[in-house]
Design a protein around this nucleic acid. Structure first.
Lengths: 138, 138
DNA sequence: ATACTTGCAAATCGTTTGCAATACC
DNA sequence: GGTATTGCAAACGATTTGCAAGTAT
């Protein structure tokens, strides 16, 4: 690859996830994790962003990359609407506001929600996550 | 309509929601709210059930009916996976366990989860709901 | 050199819709 | 009779996949 900005940390991120740092994965990762760092994106949104930034990548590759980033622990998927997937660059435990009419997602740090007790987990099951989703309309 | 079991309460439910009690809506409503009362269904699951019970109804009508039931306040939609919608006959405020590998949903009554504090709601927004989803794997 | 990745177009999945035939009031 | 509802098939939007061409190590 030609002499682009190195972005060592992003390159490392990809390697850490076991992904070859290809032109398109580097470009997408830079949009997601570099500089201003997007919080929440949809596949289509990220593709549009890439097009604006002159990063040439197909929508199929955006989908594939997002899934690989999720599998590699670089992103979390947030499900708030059936039919559209959001991806969150915040991979820590946390919660969300979802503004239904605008489709906007807003992070809520885990410690801003106090959960005082939970029911016992069904036999034989293992806890994956506890997600609080606060639906709003504006 | 021929002399089927009357199921007065179900008929009333439909009327209350402003829906004509047609053969297929009555059949579906009976599956959902009558007797054993299913908790959680998908459109396809309900359609299969209908076929088993010899209720002749098309998948399109199942989808339409489920949406009408939601609009009429007879059902709630639960979003846990993008790409598939679950419908819940429990219309009270409550939470869910979701067993990811089996796709099983389990209700948690609202008072089994203690939420001690929430962050302030963004300006100009109105609260719709607070949903706790506990993801599990078994 | 080899295995992995890409892009395109076609395929798939769940869901919605147009419209003619049918059922409800 | 007039309007709402149904069923089918076609349309849909989001996402995935097969495969030939291109790229990273």
């Amino acid at each position: 690859m030609h002499r682009d900005r190195p972005y060592r940390p992003i390159l490392e991120k990809l390697r850490a996830a076991g992904l070859r740092p290809t032109r398109q994965r580097l470009g997408l990762a830079r949009l997601l994790f570099g500089g201003e760092g997007r919080q929440h994106v949809t596949a289509e949104g990220l593709h549009n962003l890439a097009v604006e930034e002159e990063i040439s990548v197909s929508l199929a590759t955006v989908y594939n990359s997002l899934n690989q980033f999720v599998d590699g622990g670089l992103l979390k998927e947030v499900v708030v609407e059936s039919g559209r997937s959001y991806f969150d660059t915040n991979i820590e435990d946390h919660h969300h506001f979802y503004i239904e009419n605008t489709g906007q997602l807003i992070d809520i740090p885990a410690d801003h929600v106090g959960i005082s007790h939970l029911p016992p987990i069904p036999d034989g099951a293992n806890l994956r996550s506890v997600e609080v989703l606060i639906r709003l309309v504006s």
